[in-house]
Amino acid sequence: MAAALRFDEVSKSYPAWRRLRRRPVQALDGLSLEVEDGEIFGFLGPNGAGKTTALHLLMGFIFPDRGRGRVYDYGFGDPRGRLRIGFLPENLGFYRYLTAEQLLWYYGRLNEVPDWSLQVRVPDLLEKVGLGDARQRRLGGYSRGMLQRLGLAQVLIHDPDLLVLDEPTSGLDPLGRRLVRQLLLELKAAGKTIFLSSHLLSEIELVCDRVGVIHRGRLQRVGSVRALLEASSRMELTVRGASPALLDALRQQGAEVYEQDRLHRIVLDRDQQRPAIERLWQEGGELLSAVPARSTIEEFFLEAVEDTPPEPGGPR
């Protein structure tokens, strides 16, 4: 499959002064990464790891010190490449004097979308992100969540092939987050490529095909989400009506048990799962769900970050 996005040994440092001496901060250090056409790639990393720098480089907002990258067949920052990208920055600024409709028309025109198409797409997109009723309102009166929804609409205005999203659920309430997840899954089904930078591991797990962890400007690990989940040695059961004796027995075998609203969440080894469920059923209890333990991606992330040796001169 062709690469939609590629970083080749890309390095970027920012000038910084410390004790009257110029000591550049290395934000990216030889980042190499490939995102295939049609996949959803989760880009993970702690604060200051270099995620946003990578995104800004690929959009051409800043320039690399070394290395190069391509979006489809175009170099980073080439307007022809950007025509195929929908970009959502983390801190999105809006023109407060425009209405949502006017903003989408403006961005649509900059992306060469014909007027007849915008007449259909603008109201459709605003309905889709739940802003249909507020489309004539000036953005100065929008809440943060509404602006974030509008941010998603502006990403899709020209029906891009590649979506570059920096923390798309930031500032959204649970309903908004669900909307984003649904939208991402729809886009995935439509064959779009998504490069998703997020702190929220649960989101990444739900929508991504592959994840990469960046730390101290370097890509530490890349893995398939499916393989990670299948390789999980721990399972998470949600049960109702488990007897105290069963819970005690599981605790003694090393399981973690959490109580929540008369339900129990039990995290245990995969080979303990079957006997535990059988005993639960024998005692008249009910199994509500059994999923790979969510900590899988978390472990993957933490291992990648904690295994990284400190870099002299790297970001602190």
Binding site: M59, G60, F61, P79, R80, R82, L83, I85, F87, P89, L92, G93, Y107, L110, N111, E112, G151, Q154, H158
Partner: peptide, 8 residues
């Protein structure tokens, strides 16, 4: 950013 993130 969203403006220059376009084909401009």
């Amino acid at each position: 950013l969203p403006t220059l993130g376009r084909a401009l």
